[in-house]
Design a protein around this nucleic acid. Structure first.
Lengths: 123, 123, 123, 123
DNA sequence: GTGGTCTAGACCACC
DNA sequence: GTGGTCTAGACCACG
Protein backbone atom coordinates (compact mmCIF):
# COMPACT_ATOMS: atom_id res chain seq x y z
CA UNK A 1 0.00 0.00 0.00
CA UNK A 2 2.80 2.36 0.88
CA UNK A 3 6.52 2.22 0.31
CA UNK A 4 8.81 4.34 2.42
CA UNK A 5 12.02 5.85 1.14
CA UNK A 6 14.57 5.77 3.90
CA UNK A 7 16.91 8.00 1.92
CA UNK A 8 14.32 10.77 1.84
CA UNK A 9 15.40 13.59 4.09
CA UNK A 10 11.87 14.34 5.27
CA UNK A 11 10.66 12.78 8.51
CA UNK A 12 8.91 9.48 8.05
CA UNK A 13 5.58 10.67 9.39
CA UNK A 14 5.58 13.32 6.69
CA UNK A 15 6.16 10.77 4.00
CA UNK A 16 3.28 8.72 5.36
CA UNK A 17 1.06 11.80 5.34
CA UNK A 18 1.96 12.61 1.77
CA UNK A 19 1.43 9.09 0.49
CA UNK A 20 -1.93 8.66 2.23
CA UNK A 21 -3.02 12.08 1.06
CA UNK A 22 -2.42 11.07 -2.52
CA UNK A 23 -4.29 7.83 -2.05
CA UNK A 24 -7.25 9.81 -0.81
CA UNK A 25 -7.03 12.56 -3.42
CA UNK A 26 -6.84 9.99 -6.19
CA UNK A 27 -9.85 8.13 -4.81
CA UNK A 28 -7.95 4.92 -4.10
CA UNK A 29 -9.12 5.32 -0.53
CA UNK A 30 -12.78 6.25 -1.02
CA UNK A 31 -14.94 8.43 1.20
CA UNK A 32 -16.15 6.60 4.26
CA UNK A 33 -13.71 3.76 3.82
CA UNK A 34 -11.95 2.53 6.93
CA UNK A 35 -8.25 3.34 7.16
CA UNK A 36 -5.88 0.64 8.39
CA UNK A 37 -5.43 0.76 12.14
CA UNK A 38 -2.47 2.63 13.51
CA UNK A 39 -0.92 -0.53 14.84
CA UNK A 40 -1.39 -2.61 11.72
CA UNK A 41 0.03 0.06 9.44
CA UNK A 42 2.95 0.52 11.82
CA UNK A 43 3.62 -3.20 11.64
CA UNK A 44 3.36 -3.25 7.87
CA UNK A 45 5.85 -0.41 7.47
CA UNK A 46 8.07 -1.56 10.35
CA UNK A 47 7.96 1.78 12.06
CA UNK A 48 7.04 2.97 15.49
CA UNK A 49 3.26 3.29 16.06
CA UNK A 50 3.90 6.82 17.34
CA UNK A 51 5.00 7.74 13.86
CA UNK A 52 1.77 6.54 12.27
CA UNK A 53 -0.25 8.11 15.07
CA UNK A 54 1.31 11.41 14.27
CA UNK A 55 0.63 11.07 10.56
CA UNK A 56 -3.02 10.25 11.22
CA UNK A 57 -3.31 13.22 13.55
CA UNK A 58 -2.05 15.53 10.87
CA UNK A 59 -4.31 14.03 8.22
CA UNK A 60 -7.24 14.51 10.55
CA UNK A 61 -6.21 18.08 11.21
CA UNK A 62 -6.08 18.71 7.46
CA UNK A 63 -9.55 17.28 7.02
CA UNK A 64 -8.70 14.09 5.15
CA UNK A 65 -9.69 11.74 7.97
CA UNK A 66 -12.00 11.60 10.90
CA UNK A 67 -11.56 9.34 13.83
CA UNK A 68 -14.27 7.55 15.74
CA UNK A 69 -12.95 6.69 19.12
CA UNK A 70 -12.79 2.97 19.56
CA UNK A 71 -13.83 2.21 15.98
CA UNK A 72 -10.96 3.56 13.92
CA UNK A 73 -10.26 6.21 11.32
CA UNK A 74 -12.22 6.83 8.14
CA UNK A 75 -11.76 8.82 4.97
CA UNK A 76 -13.61 12.13 5.23
CA UNK A 77 -16.10 13.33 2.57
CA UNK A 78 -14.45 14.99 -0.38
CA UNK A 79 -15.85 18.47 0.34
CA UNK A 80 -13.88 18.51 3.60
CA UNK A 81 -10.48 18.54 1.98
CA UNK A 82 -10.87 19.20 -1.72
CA UNK A 83 -10.84 22.98 -1.56
CA UNK A 84 -8.03 23.17 0.99
CA UNK A 85 -5.88 20.92 -1.13
CA UNK A 86 -6.50 22.93 -4.25
CA UNK A 87 -5.76 26.26 -2.58
CA UNK A 88 -2.59 24.95 -1.00
CA UNK A 89 -1.25 23.40 -4.16
CA UNK A 90 -2.18 26.40 -6.25
CA UNK A 91 -0.33 28.80 -3.98
CA UNK A 92 2.87 26.81 -4.19
CA UNK A 93 2.41 26.44 -7.92
CA UNK A 94 2.07 30.16 -8.48
CA UNK A 95 5.11 30.85 -6.40
CA UNK A 96 7.18 28.44 -8.45
CA UNK A 97 5.77 29.84 -11.66
CA UNK A 98 7.00 33.27 -10.64
CA UNK A 99 10.40 31.85 -9.84
CA UNK A 100 10.49 30.16 -13.22
CA UNK A 101 9.76 33.50 -14.86
CA UNK A 102 12.54 35.16 -12.85
CA UNK A 103 14.96 32.43 -13.85
CA UNK A 104 14.21 33.07 -17.50
CA UNK A 105 12.00 30.07 -18.30
CA UNK A 106 9.77 31.00 -21.22
CA UNK A 107 5.98 31.13 -21.02
CA UNK A 108 5.79 28.83 -24.00
CA UNK A 109 7.82 26.11 -22.28
CA UNK A 110 5.52 26.13 -19.26
CA UNK A 111 2.45 25.94 -21.45
CA UNK A 112 3.89 23.04 -23.39
CA UNK A 113 4.63 21.18 -20.18
CA UNK A 114 1.08 21.74 -18.97
CA UNK A 115 -0.25 20.24 -22.16
CA UNK A 116 2.07 17.27 -21.74
CA UNK A 117 0.94 16.66 -18.20
CA UNK A 118 -2.77 17.18 -18.75
CA UNK A 119 -2.97 15.74 -22.22
CA UNK A 120 -4.34 17.69 -25.14
CA UNK A 121 -8.04 17.34 -24.32
CA UNK A 122 -9.91 19.66 -21.98
CA UNK A 123 -9.68 17.13 -19.06
CA UNK B 1 18.53 44.00 2.10
CA UNK B 2 17.11 40.84 3.64
CA UNK B 3 14.36 40.19 6.14
CA UNK B 4 14.28 36.94 8.07
CA UNK B 5 11.05 35.23 9.00
CA UNK B 6 11.50 33.65 12.39
CA UNK B 7 8.21 31.78 12.10
CA UNK B 8 9.53 29.95 9.08
CA UNK B 9 10.45 26.42 10.08
CA UNK B 10 13.39 26.25 7.73
CA UNK B 11 16.85 26.88 9.14
CA UNK B 12 18.06 30.45 9.00
CA UNK B 13 20.97 29.73 6.72
CA UNK B 14 18.57 28.27 4.18
CA UNK B 15 16.41 31.36 4.23
CA UNK B 16 19.47 33.48 3.68
CA UNK B 17 20.49 31.27 0.76
CA UNK B 18 17.08 31.55 -0.82
CA UNK B 19 16.85 35.30 -0.44
CA UNK B 20 20.33 35.97 -1.79
CA UNK B 21 19.72 33.55 -4.63
CA UNK B 22 16.76 35.61 -5.72
CA UNK B 23 18.69 38.84 -5.47
CA UNK B 24 21.27 37.36 -7.79
CA UNK B 25 18.78 35.77 -10.19
CA UNK B 26 16.91 39.05 -10.46
CA UNK B 27 20.08 40.95 -11.13
CA UNK B 28 19.78 43.12 -8.03
CA UNK B 29 23.20 41.81 -7.16
CA UNK B 30 25.05 42.04 -10.46
CA UNK B 31 27.85 39.82 -11.72
CA UNK B 32 31.18 40.69 -10.16
CA UNK B 33 29.62 42.83 -7.47
CA UNK B 34 30.94 42.39 -3.96
CA UNK B 35 28.62 40.65 -1.55
CA UNK B 36 28.32 42.02 1.97
CA UNK B 37 31.00 40.55 4.19
CA UNK B 38 30.10 37.58 6.34
CA UNK B 39 30.49 39.58 9.51
CA UNK B 40 28.60 42.65 8.35
CA UNK B 41 25.62 40.67 7.10
CA UNK B 42 25.64 38.69 10.33
CA UNK B 43 25.49 41.94 12.27
CA UNK B 44 22.73 43.31 10.08
CA UNK B 45 20.57 40.22 10.54
CA UNK B 46 21.57 39.75 14.17
CA UNK B 47 22.71 36.19 13.65
CA UNK B 48 25.96 34.42 14.25
CA UNK B 49 28.65 34.84 11.59
CA UNK B 50 28.88 31.06 11.32
CA UNK B 51 25.33 30.97 10.06
CA UNK B 52 26.04 33.43 7.26
CA UNK B 53 29.26 31.67 6.50
CA UNK B 54 27.32 28.50 5.95
CA UNK B 55 24.88 30.23 3.64
CA UNK B 56 27.73 31.68 1.60
CA UNK B 57 29.41 28.29 1.40
CA UNK B 58 26.24 26.78 -0.02
CA UNK B 59 25.77 29.62 -2.48
CA UNK B 60 29.33 29.12 -3.63
CA UNK B 61 28.80 25.41 -3.97
CA UNK B 62 25.73 26.10 -6.12
CA UNK B 63 27.72 28.47 -8.32
CA UNK B 64 26.03 31.75 -7.39
CA UNK B 65 29.15 33.32 -5.97
CA UNK B 66 32.83 32.82 -5.61
CA UNK B 67 34.87 33.78 -2.66
CA UNK B 68 38.40 35.03 -2.32
CA UNK B 69 39.72 34.42 1.14
CA UNK B 70 40.78 37.63 2.76
CA UNK B 71 39.04 39.79 0.15
CA UNK B 72 35.40 38.89 0.17
CA UNK B 73 32.74 37.12 -1.86
CA UNK B 74 31.58 38.16 -5.31
CA UNK B 75 28.65 37.36 -7.56
CA UNK B 76 29.62 34.75 -10.13
CA UNK B 77 29.05 35.15 -13.88
CA UNK B 78 25.50 34.37 -14.92
CA UNK B 79 26.37 31.33 -17.01
CA UNK B 80 27.61 29.56 -13.90
CA UNK B 81 24.21 29.37 -12.27
CA UNK B 82 21.56 30.20 -14.83
CA UNK B 83 21.06 26.73 -16.21
CA UNK B 84 21.14 25.00 -12.83
CA UNK B 85 18.53 27.36 -11.51
CA UNK B 86 16.23 26.77 -14.44
CA UNK B 87 16.45 23.00 -14.22
CA UNK B 88 15.88 23.01 -10.49
CA UNK B 89 12.87 25.30 -10.61
CA UNK B 90 11.35 23.48 -13.56
CA UNK B 91 11.50 20.13 -11.82
CA UNK B 92 9.66 21.42 -8.78
CA UNK B 93 7.17 23.19 -11.00
CA UNK B 94 6.32 20.08 -12.95
CA UNK B 95 5.86 18.13 -9.75
CA UNK B 96 3.43 20.71 -8.43
CA UNK B 97 1.62 20.85 -11.74
CA UNK B 98 1.01 17.12 -11.50
CA UNK B 99 -0.27 17.53 -7.97
CA UNK B 100 -2.57 20.29 -9.13
CA UNK B 101 -3.97 17.98 -11.78
CA UNK B 102 -4.55 15.25 -9.20
CA UNK B 103 -6.28 17.70 -6.92
CA UNK B 104 -8.68 18.56 -9.71
CA UNK B 105 -7.35 21.98 -10.71
CA UNK B 106 -8.37 22.61 -14.31
CA UNK B 107 -5.88 23.07 -17.11
CA UNK B 108 -7.60 26.31 -18.03
CA UNK B 109 -7.08 27.81 -14.58
CA UNK B 110 -3.35 27.09 -14.69
CA UNK B 111 -3.04 28.60 -18.13
CA UNK B 112 -4.91 31.71 -17.05
CA UNK B 113 -2.57 32.10 -14.07
CA UNK B 114 0.46 31.77 -16.30
CA UNK B 115 -0.85 34.56 -18.50
CA UNK B 116 -1.45 36.71 -15.44
CA UNK B 117 2.05 36.17 -14.13
CA UNK B 118 3.86 36.56 -17.43
CA UNK B 119 1.59 39.22 -18.90
CA UNK B 120 -0.14 38.80 -22.23
CA UNK B 121 2.89 39.44 -24.43
CA UNK B 122 5.23 36.71 -25.54
CA UNK B 123 7.50 37.32 -22.50
CA UNK C 1 39.53 3.32 12.59
CA UNK C 2 41.03 6.67 11.73
CA UNK C 3 44.19 8.47 12.78
CA UNK C 4 44.47 12.22 12.45
CA UNK C 5 47.69 13.94 11.54
CA UNK C 6 47.87 17.19 13.44
CA UNK C 7 50.88 18.36 11.47
CA UNK C 8 48.85 18.23 8.30
CA UNK C 9 47.95 21.77 7.30
CA UNK C 10 44.57 20.74 5.93
CA UNK C 11 41.53 21.24 8.13
CA UNK C 12 40.54 18.31 10.29
CA UNK C 13 37.18 17.78 8.67
CA UNK C 14 38.90 17.39 5.32
CA UNK C 15 41.24 14.75 6.66
CA UNK C 16 38.28 12.89 8.05
CA UNK C 17 36.53 13.12 4.69
CA UNK C 18 39.56 11.78 2.89
CA UNK C 19 40.10 8.90 5.28
CA UNK C 20 36.46 7.82 5.30
CA UNK C 21 36.32 8.13 1.53
CA UNK C 22 39.13 5.65 1.23
CA UNK C 23 37.50 3.26 3.66
CA UNK C 24 34.40 3.33 1.50
CA UNK C 25 36.24 3.11 -1.82
CA UNK C 26 38.23 0.14 -0.55
CA UNK C 27 35.11 -1.60 0.63
CA UNK C 28 36.16 -1.65 4.27
CA UNK C 29 32.93 0.15 4.92
CA UNK C 30 30.47 -1.79 2.80
CA UNK C 31 27.33 -0.51 1.11
CA UNK C 32 24.44 -0.12 3.51
CA UNK C 33 26.65 -0.45 6.55
CA UNK C 34 26.05 1.97 9.38
CA UNK C 35 28.70 4.62 9.85
CA UNK C 36 29.80 5.47 13.37
CA UNK C 37 27.54 8.13 14.85
CA UNK C 38 28.68 11.72 14.68
CA UNK C 39 29.10 11.91 18.42
CA UNK C 40 30.88 8.62 18.87
CA UNK C 41 33.40 9.33 16.12
CA UNK C 42 33.95 12.79 17.59
CA UNK C 43 34.69 11.22 20.95
CA UNK C 44 37.02 8.66 19.41
CA UNK C 45 39.03 11.31 17.58
CA UNK C 46 38.78 13.81 20.41
CA UNK C 47 37.34 16.52 18.22
CA UNK C 48 34.19 18.54 18.35
CA UNK C 49 31.04 16.86 17.02
CA UNK C 50 30.52 19.83 14.71
CA UNK C 51 33.73 18.94 12.92
CA UNK C 52 32.60 15.38 12.24
CA UNK C 53 29.18 16.64 11.28
CA UNK C 54 30.75 18.77 8.66
CA UNK C 55 32.78 15.89 7.30
CA UNK C 56 29.66 13.72 7.09
CA UNK C 57 27.76 16.51 5.35
CA UNK C 58 30.45 16.72 2.71
CA UNK C 59 30.61 12.97 2.25
CA UNK C 60 26.86 12.95 1.79
CA UNK C 61 27.06 15.76 -0.70
CA UNK C 62 29.66 13.79 -2.65
CA UNK C 63 27.43 10.73 -2.66
CA UNK C 64 29.46 8.46 -0.39
CA UNK C 65 26.83 8.17 2.29
CA UNK C 66 23.27 9.03 3.02
CA UNK C 67 21.93 10.01 6.32
CA UNK C 68 18.64 9.41 8.03
CA UNK C 69 18.00 11.95 10.71
CA UNK C 70 17.48 10.29 14.04
CA UNK C 71 18.81 6.96 12.83
CA UNK C 72 22.31 7.50 11.60
CA UNK C 73 24.39 7.61 8.44
CA UNK C 74 24.89 4.74 6.03
CA UNK C 75 27.24 3.93 3.19
CA UNK C 76 25.59 4.68 -0.15
CA UNK C 77 25.42 2.17 -3.03
CA UNK C 78 28.63 2.03 -5.03
CA UNK C 79 27.14 3.37 -8.26
CA UNK C 80 26.46 6.67 -6.52
CA UNK C 81 30.11 7.54 -6.02
CA UNK C 82 32.22 5.24 -8.15
CA UNK C 83 32.21 7.26 -11.32
CA UNK C 84 32.70 10.59 -9.58
CA UNK C 85 35.68 9.24 -7.73
CA UNK C 86 37.30 7.91 -10.86
CA UNK C 87 36.87 11.15 -12.77
CA UNK C 88 38.19 13.22 -9.91
CA UNK C 89 41.24 11.07 -9.32
CA UNK C 90 42.00 10.79 -13.00
CA UNK C 91 41.99 14.54 -13.50
CA UNK C 92 44.51 15.08 -10.73
CA UNK C 93 46.58 12.20 -12.00
CA UNK C 94 46.81 13.61 -15.50
CA UNK C 95 47.78 16.98 -14.15
CA UNK C 96 50.60 15.47 -12.14
CA UNK C 97 51.67 13.35 -15.08
CA UNK C 98 52.08 16.52 -17.13
CA UNK C 99 54.09 18.10 -14.34
CA UNK C 100 56.26 15.02 -14.18
CA UNK C 101 56.93 15.33 -17.89
CA UNK C 102 57.84 19.00 -17.50
CA UNK C 103 60.17 18.17 -14.64
CA UNK C 104 61.98 15.73 -16.85
CA UNK C 105 60.72 12.44 -15.45
CA UNK C 106 61.00 9.83 -18.18
CA UNK C 107 58.03 8.01 -19.63
CA UNK C 108 59.74 4.72 -18.88
CA UNK C 109 60.04 5.49 -15.18
CA UNK C 110 56.33 6.24 -14.90
CA UNK C 111 55.42 3.06 -16.73
CA UNK C 112 57.67 1.02 -14.49
CA UNK C 113 56.04 2.52 -11.40
CA UNK C 114 52.60 1.70 -12.75
CA UNK C 115 53.60 -1.90 -13.19
CA UNK C 116 54.96 -1.99 -9.64
CA UNK C 117 51.76 -0.56 -8.20
CA UNK C 118 49.34 -2.64 -10.22
CA UNK C 119 51.42 -5.78 -10.35
CA UNK C 120 52.38 -7.44 -13.61
CA UNK C 121 48.99 -9.00 -14.34
CA UNK C 122 46.35 -7.31 -16.45
CA UNK C 123 44.16 -6.30 -13.44
CA UNK D 1 54.32 37.04 -17.90
CA UNK D 2 51.93 35.77 -15.30
CA UNK D 3 48.19 35.83 -15.07
CA UNK D 4 46.55 35.41 -11.71
CA UNK D 5 43.24 33.66 -11.23
CA UNK D 6 41.34 35.45 -8.53
CA UNK D 7 38.78 32.68 -8.35
CA UNK D 8 41.44 30.17 -7.39
CA UNK D 9 41.06 29.16 -3.78
CA UNK D 10 44.78 29.00 -3.15
CA UNK D 11 46.53 32.03 -1.69
CA UNK D 12 47.93 34.37 -4.27
CA UNK D 13 51.55 33.93 -3.23
CA UNK D 14 51.15 30.22 -3.89
CA UNK D 15 49.86 30.84 -7.37
CA UNK D 16 52.81 33.09 -8.04
CA UNK D 17 55.18 30.41 -6.77
CA UNK D 18 53.59 27.78 -8.98
CA UNK D 19 53.65 29.93 -12.09
CA UNK D 20 57.24 31.03 -11.63
CA UNK D 21 58.28 27.48 -10.85
CA UNK D 22 56.89 26.35 -14.17
CA UNK D 23 58.61 29.16 -16.01
CA UNK D 24 61.87 28.01 -14.50
CA UNK D 25 61.29 24.30 -15.00
CA UNK D 26 60.37 24.86 -18.62
CA UNK D 27 63.45 26.98 -19.17
CA UNK D 28 61.56 30.14 -20.02
CA UNK D 29 63.48 31.74 -17.21
CA UNK D 30 66.99 30.48 -17.82
CA UNK D 31 69.70 29.80 -15.28
CA UNK D 32 71.40 32.97 -14.12
CA UNK D 33 68.73 35.21 -15.57
CA UNK D 34 67.59 38.09 -13.41
CA UNK D 35 64.08 37.80 -12.01
CA UNK D 36 61.85 40.87 -12.07
CA UNK D 37 62.21 42.90 -8.91
CA UNK D 38 59.72 42.33 -6.13
CA UNK D 39 58.26 45.79 -6.53
CA UNK D 40 57.95 45.71 -10.30
CA UNK D 41 56.28 42.31 -10.33
CA UNK D 42 53.96 43.47 -7.58
CA UNK D 43 53.02 46.48 -9.68
CA UNK D 44 52.49 44.36 -12.77
CA UNK D 45 50.17 41.95 -10.96
CA UNK D 46 48.53 44.66 -8.86
CA UNK D 47 49.21 42.86 -5.63
CA UNK D 48 50.89 43.77 -2.40
CA UNK D 49 54.71 43.61 -2.55
CA UNK D 50 54.58 41.49 0.60
CA UNK D 51 52.85 38.82 -1.44
CA UNK D 52 55.60 38.69 -4.05
CA UNK D 53 58.23 38.87 -1.35
CA UNK D 54 56.74 35.79 0.20
CA UNK D 55 56.63 33.94 -3.12
CA UNK D 56 60.29 34.75 -3.79
CA UNK D 57 61.24 33.61 -0.30
CA UNK D 58 59.58 30.27 -0.89
CA UNK D 59 61.15 29.86 -4.30
CA UNK D 60 64.52 30.60 -2.78
CA UNK D 61 63.89 28.11 -0.02
CA UNK D 62 63.02 25.48 -2.62
CA UNK D 63 66.22 26.20 -4.52
CA UNK D 64 64.79 27.79 -7.64
CA UNK D 65 66.18 31.25 -6.91
CA UNK D 66 69.04 32.89 -5.13
CA UNK D 67 69.08 36.45 -3.98
CA UNK D 68 72.03 38.80 -4.02
CA UNK D 69 71.40 41.52 -1.55
CA UNK D 70 71.09 44.87 -3.28
CA UNK D 71 71.29 43.35 -6.78
CA UNK D 72 68.15 41.28 -7.07
CA UNK D 73 67.09 37.65 -7.50
CA UNK D 74 68.39 35.22 -10.08
CA UNK D 75 67.42 31.82 -11.39
CA UNK D 76 69.49 29.13 -9.70
CA UNK D 77 71.44 26.48 -11.62
CA UNK D 78 69.33 23.54 -12.67
CA UNK D 79 71.06 21.02 -10.41
CA UNK D 80 69.81 22.96 -7.38
CA UNK D 81 66.16 22.25 -7.96
CA UNK D 82 65.85 19.58 -10.59
CA UNK D 83 66.07 16.58 -8.32
CA UNK D 84 63.88 18.07 -5.60
CA UNK D 85 61.20 18.84 -8.12
CA UNK D 86 61.29 15.38 -9.58
CA UNK D 87 61.12 13.65 -6.22
CA UNK D 88 58.27 15.83 -5.05
CA UNK D 89 56.20 15.38 -8.19
CA UNK D 90 56.88 11.68 -8.32
CA UNK D 91 55.71 11.11 -4.78
CA UNK D 92 52.42 12.81 -5.43
CA UNK D 93 52.07 10.98 -8.70
CA UNK D 94 52.56 7.58 -7.10
CA UNK D 95 50.04 8.40 -4.42
CA UNK D 96 47.44 9.34 -7.00
CA UNK D 97 48.25 6.28 -9.05
CA UNK D 98 47.48 4.12 -6.03
CA UNK D 99 44.23 5.96 -5.51
CA UNK D 100 43.35 5.45 -9.14
CA UNK D 101 43.93 1.73 -8.70
CA UNK D 102 41.73 1.68 -5.61
CA UNK D 103 39.00 3.52 -7.46
CA UNK D 104 39.02 0.88 -10.14
CA UNK D 105 40.82 2.72 -12.92
CA UNK D 106 42.45 0.17 -15.20
CA UNK D 107 46.17 -0.07 -15.75
CA UNK D 108 45.59 0.14 -19.47
CA UNK D 109 43.80 3.47 -19.21
CA UNK D 110 46.66 5.02 -17.27
CA UNK D 111 49.20 3.73 -19.75
CA UNK D 112 47.19 5.09 -22.64
CA UNK D 113 47.03 8.48 -20.97
CA UNK D 114 50.77 8.49 -20.44
CA UNK D 115 51.31 7.83 -24.11
CA UNK D 116 48.93 10.65 -24.99
CA UNK D 117 50.72 13.10 -22.72
CA UNK D 118 54.26 12.12 -23.65
CA UNK D 119 53.62 11.32 -27.27
CA UNK D 120 54.51 7.97 -28.77
CA UNK D 121 58.26 8.48 -29.04
CA UNK D 122 60.65 7.85 -26.20
CA UNK D 123 60.81 11.61 -25.37
C1' DG E 1 39.36 43.56 7.68
C1' DT E 2 38.36 39.17 5.23
C1' DG E 3 37.07 34.38 5.04
C1' DG E 4 37.96 29.62 7.20
C1' DT E 5 38.21 26.53 10.97
C1' DC E 6 37.39 24.86 15.50
C1' DT E 7 35.49 24.36 20.28
C1' DA E 8 32.12 24.19 23.87
C1' DG E 9 27.75 24.06 24.86
C1' DA E 10 22.98 24.35 23.89
C1' DC E 11 18.33 23.24 21.88
C1' DC E 12 15.33 20.94 18.60
C1' DA E 13 12.89 17.27 15.83
C1' DC E 14 12.61 12.59 15.01
C1' DC E 15 12.22 7.78 16.31
C1' DG F 1 20.11 8.07 20.99
C1' DT F 2 20.36 10.21 16.35
C1' DG F 3 21.38 14.06 13.20
C1' DG F 4 20.69 19.27 12.46
C1' DT F 5 21.04 23.97 13.75
C1' DC F 6 22.66 27.85 16.24
C1' DT F 7 25.45 30.87 19.40
C1' DA F 8 29.48 32.79 21.49
C1' DG F 9 33.94 33.19 21.30
C1' DA F 10 38.42 32.11 19.68
C1' DC F 11 42.50 31.57 16.52
C1' DC F 12 44.64 31.47 11.94
C1' DA F 13 46.19 32.74 7.15
C1' DC F 14 45.87 36.17 3.84
C1' DG F 15 46.50 40.75 1.84
Amino acid sequence: MIVLDYRDKRPIYEQVVEKLERLVVNGILATGEKMPSVRSLAMELSVNPNTIQRAYAQLEQEGYLYTVSGRGSFVAPEREWRENKQVEVLQGWQDLTRQAKEAGVSKELLQRRIREIYGEGSQ
